[in-house]
Design a protein around this nucleic acid. Structure first.
Length: 115
DNA sequence: CCCTTGACTATCT
DNA sequence: GAGATAGCCAAGG
């Protein structure tokens, strides 16, 4: 799929807005779900451009570490918001705790049961 | 153009 | 499992 900023942004925001509380998704997974498999690096940029609030804190790296420098304001804010929905940060890695019902993107979403 | 910089990843050591 | 490496790709200088 050819890259177009407006469409890419919209697709990314759509996917991220659907991640449910207590779950996290990787940048690469978001990119794939949005239809742009090679654009993991562009996801963060889009999130920063979002005109309205998004649960962006549920997006982490593929290895489950947060994308911000540990100790930075952004890092702390993301960590706090994740912990607020029962996602722990152990050894720098985000670990989902409780699980709920079904979700379309289940295969791309990280839950308590792992991949 | 060329080069650098990222809210990235997969694959080796 | 932590580093290093090599792809990745849009933006900006």
């Amino acid at each position: 799929m050819r890259y177009r900023q407006a469409e890419f942004d919209a697709a990314v925001w759509e996917v991220v807005s659907r991640i449910r509380p207590g779950r996290v998704l990787s940048y690469g997974a978001v990119a794939r779900a949005a239809g742009y498999p090679r654009h993991a690096r562009m996801v963060g940029r889009s999130l920063g451009r979002s005109p309205q609030p998004l649960p962006w804190h549920r997006v982490v790296r593929a290895d489950r570490t947060l994308a911000f420098a540990p100790g930075s304001t952004a890092y702390l804010r993301q960590k706090r918001q994740l912990e607020a929905e029962n996602v722990r940060i152990e050894g720098g890695r985000a670990v989902a705790a409780a699980d709920d019902g079904p979700l379309d993107l289940d295969r791309l979403l990280w839950g308590p049961d792992g991949a």
